[in-house]
Write a protein that binds this DNA or RNA. Sequence first.
DNA 1: ACTACCCGCTAGTATGAACC
DNA 2: GGTTCATACTAGCGGGTAGT
Length: 731
Amino acid sequence: MGAPRKRPACAKAASGKQSEKADEENPKAKEELPETPTVMASGMVTPLATVQLLTKAAGLRRSDKSNELEWASAFDGTGMPSYALKLLSVPDMSSTFNGSGYCYVHNHCCEVPTTSPMLLCAGFLCKSSSLQNGSRWVKDPVAADSASWMSFQDTMKLLQKANPRFFILENVQGCKFPGAPRKRRAPEDESATQSPKDVFDEVISKELPNFNVQCINLDSAPMAEQVSRISAAAKTIPRQSLQFYFDQSSVAEVGVPESQEYDGTREVAYTQHFATQMQKAIEAGRIPKTAVPKHRHLRPSSVCKALQCMPPGTQAIADVALMILVEKHGDLENLPVAIADVSQSSDRLKLSVTGIWGTITTSSKLFDFKSEKLLDARMQLQLLGIDVKDVMVTWLKDKEITDMAGNAMSISQCTQVLLPLLSHLGQAKKEISVLWVAGGGLASPLLLDEVAWPGKSVAEVKLVEFALDPARQQARVLYDKNFAKVACLQTSSDIMNVKCLASVIVAGRAPTSKKAFEWFLKSWKEFSHQRGVKIVLVLSSPRPPSISDPASCGWVFGSHEINWSLFSCFDTSCYVTIFCQAEQQGSNLAKALAHEMAKILQLPHVHGTNKHVNEQLPKTESTDKKDLKILAAAQKLERLAGTAQASRFIDASNKSLPVKLGIPDPKKASLPLSIAQDGSVNRVCLLEALGYKAQAANLSLLSEAAQQSILASTVPAAVAATMLNAVARFL
DNA sequence: ACTACCCGCTAGTATGAACC
DNA sequence: GGTTCATACTAGCGGGTAGT
């Protein structure tokens, strides 16, 4: 399914060979491959890798503590839920029960658990609802005597008995189509247009009223098996090719001995089959009337060992299949793989030259003309994502294995279903990129701990900044030794080139000028659009953002004022604004901020403390202007010692040295001094005043001025934590 | 137990043609 | 030049039955 499918009618209308050749020789078709979700992975993707890829695609990361999950499964074919959970490193607390059947997971007949499990995975028979079922449109799939209906009722009984917290039911897509006999019923009969799924839903809502049920379609990406619709998360993962499964398949063990006599009856049967298969293929328009078969001894059935032992009918199908393949896709040499399902007659058999296959059924026999191999039964199981090395299937017959494979979920589908649940149960967390707009300040998210910002463990923090003046740039170079690299934003293309995960929080200081702010918003909007990335901005600014036309900027936003005196000695405040693209109400955004703020205020360790720098006051004989200012301020403060007020502040950079009750808004040149409760006077340690621990950021390499300048543009810990926590729920 | 054969049919999709 | 319509075409967790 690699190349964009040409409309077959178009190919046909353009009269036979020409169009097909154009199809094959058109280099553009190949170039477009990477755009589709079906790029080949260059190697066998192991089950574990599949699970990990999907976890990443879902933007999740398994949290370290793997809580026990009590779960159970029933009628699940290959025990895939168990297998997937194992790969998701959920400890096996399970009890798998397979009714009267044998459980190969636990190697005995498992029993129904006595307690209610957290999760119950169950399937029920699909054949009555399957679209591949010939009588799907003749017989009512949910007739009282249908296999699906009876097994569904069994499943319902089981669910009622087991009473799990969550359950997962699995069935085929055919469930969603109403059956023919139901349609032919009288129009006043409501059930006439009901699909089996509608009927199942009705029963579930009636018999299990306490559950909310949601139905989703799932594809097997990145596995080579493909179902028609694809879940968004899996879409971006390259697919692996069937080729690798053929590589793993064994060469036919039972070849026809060379000394075997000429079998006349067999040859006659073959010739008859070949003739009819040819006729069918021609009638179906799959090969032209003028097509000339190869000589008998050059056909795959004679050449390929794997086919030599097949029944004559299958041999004939294989030979015609190759003709169809070559007719449609060109010579074998130019194809990476050339696979046909030789279990189906030539007018309807399915082909693949991409390595991507549709659904494997219980009767599929896939043959690759390139490697001249049939796909092993065990490889069909592997195709679903079970590593055959991990399971004991040696004592199963091939037919039993293919039956299992044709009836089971794939590891990919299973994982895709389980991940949201694990996420819900706190066993997997959303992985996000945090692009911190530092504005010359510290990388606050890196300095926060897990208590203040629980999302830290699953966040990838990167710094982004605008062009800085030379002095600050220099400070940056030294600062970067301690922290993550800094991406510099000067043009929109700088933003476009930022590497990130699928979910992004852009947080930090808003650009100061109105013009730059609007450019900033627009660029991220475009970034999100072009890269298909979910993005939320949360920015702090000294005043509420003034956006001329809120509707046209494309963001929904809400602001909240945070007064720094709530958590520090600072006598200032800032506005924090969340920008969302979703249809969120502005008030909700502001409310979320207020709510998070309240929570953060309860954490004492993000509060700023009034501590002095670990230095002596400058000596009185110093001639340095700055030192003299500090001294003057210190003297003024000392005179206040012993007064009722516990602590007072002076910004020594201010000429008139006004005494204040809080640290004023920090500026680049600010030199706040304070008088502590013991009467001592010294410069305030801004880092701790902002709520960070002294050891969290080592700025000792930097000059006094550089430190000052960095700290002056740093967002306080409490504000940073509020921003990051509040915004997480809007991703 | 295996093989050969036939059977069923609709929703979704791609695309050119016709239309506004 | 963009939108809707008409059309062709495909996929699909096989199954029943008769014959060997």
